[in-house]
Amino acid sequence: MEQVSLSIQEEMEPIAQELQRYFSPPQLEQLARQTGFVQRKSKYTAQELVSLCVFFNNDISITPLARLCGQLDASNHLSMSIEELNQRFNTSAVTFLQTLFSTLLQEKLMSSSSLPCKLDSPFHRIRILDSTVFQLPDSYAERYQGSGGSAHAAGMKIRLEYELKTGSFLQVDVGPGKNSDGLYGTQRTKTVEEKDLCIRDLGYFSLGDFKEIEERGAFYVSRLKVNVRVYEKNGNMERFKDGKVKKQSLYKEIDIEAIMDRLEPGESIELPEVYLGRDKKLRTRLLIYKLTEEQTL
């Protein structure tokens, strides 16, 4: 089947609809004051900024300021010079739009997918950490160097940590595509508090980070990297003639593939105590689930 790519206008349409549903002009103005975008009465309001970025323009990042001024004049009867509009695209505007998106996402999640209390009550926070990378024109390579392995020399990475219980963003970072997820995950581990639950993608898989999360009295959930060895304590340890246990026989490696072969699609098995890595330093729990045919597509 041929893949159909959506236009920017088609991608923005659902966001525009939700903004109209959840935010009135007074609410937008209040949020703009809270974020510092609006500090005094001005002809260029929060509603004008949202309209310009979401409703009126398909690709605001490459549209000349003169054309944007014309769109404001034609749609909202708002006359602004190019320099006036340029000054309004500042840090406060970015903070306002980021907060607006965060608030909208929170409203949607809380209204459609709230967690049962018995699932989230043991945790102080449920932290979800992930990232996305996309290519940029090569002219951006000096500032946003790509991660390599593609025809484009430039790339941007957005990393986001989201708190599921409150619907708030704990951290949002934008940087070059080559930036390491592993190092960033370690930085975020330093902010983990007792009873936090950290859910991370494979890019942030780190036995050291998991151990530190555990030492902080918190919890983690992650997929297992395929190249990480899994061990269990050996019930038949080997001994020397003097009775001392041979160190190399304390653990035995678990054959994950053999376990998978015994499972039916959709079936799972829990190993309550396993040890990860060649040094067997991380004791954890492992859940093995065999995908169904539909899930593998």
Rank of each mutant, 00 (worst) to 15 (best):
R88K: 06
F89A: 05
N90P: 02
S92A: 14
S92T: 06
A93V: 03
A93W: 03
A93L: 04
T95W: 00
T95P: 03
T95F: 01
L97S: 12
Q98S: 10
Q98T: 10
Q98W: 09
T99N: 13
T99A: 10
T99I: 06
T99C: 08
L100D: 02
L100I: 03
L100Y: 04
F101H: 02
F101R: 04
F101M: 13
F101Y: 12
F101Q: 04
S102I: 08
S102G: 12
S102N: 07
S102T: 06
T103C: 12
T103Y: 02
T103R: 11
L104W: 15
L104T: 15
L104K: 11
L105M: 09
L105A: 13
L105T: 15
K108P: 03
K108Q: 15
K108A: 08
L109H: 11
L109A: 10
S111H: 12
S111M: 11
S111F: 09
S111G: 12
S111E: 12
S111W: 08
S111N: 10
S112V: 05
S112A: 14
S113F: 08
S114G: 09
S114E: 03
L115I: 07
L115S: 06
L115Q: 11
P116M: 06
P116C: 12
P116V: 10
P116T: 12
P116E: 05
P116H: 14
P116R: 10
C117Y: 07
C117N: 04
C117V: 07
K118L: 11
K118C: 10
L119S: 04
L119Y: 07
D120P: 01
D120Y: 09
D120H: 07
S121M: 15
S121I: 14
S121T: 13
S121P: 06
S121L: 15
S121E: 15
P122Q: 10
P122H: 08
F123N: 01
F123K: 01
H124D: 04
R125W: 03
R125H: 10
I126H: 02
I126A: 04
I126Q: 03
R127G: 11
I128R: 05
I128H: 04
I128L: 12
I128N: 04
L129W: 06
L129R: 00
L129N: 01
L129Q: 00
S131Q: 05
S131M: 07
T132F: 11
T132P: 07
V133P: 02
V133C: 09
F134Q: 13
L136C: 08
P137S: 14
S139Y: 07
S139A: 10
Y140H: 07
Y140L: 03
Y140A: 08
A141H: 02
E142H: 07
E142T: 13
R143F: 04
Y144N: 04
Y144G: 02
Q145L: 13
G146Y: 00
G146E: 03
S147I: 01
S147W: 01
G148I: 14
G148Y: 03
G149R: 06
S150W: 01
S150G: 13
S150N: 08
S150I: 14
S150C: 00
A151T: 13
A151C: 12
H152I: 08
H152D: 07
H152C: 08
H152A: 13
A153F: 01
A153W: 00
A153S: 07
A153R: 04
A154C: 03
A154R: 02
A154V: 01
G155T: 05
K157E: 07
K157L: 06
K157N: 01
K157V: 03
I158W: 00
I158H: 00
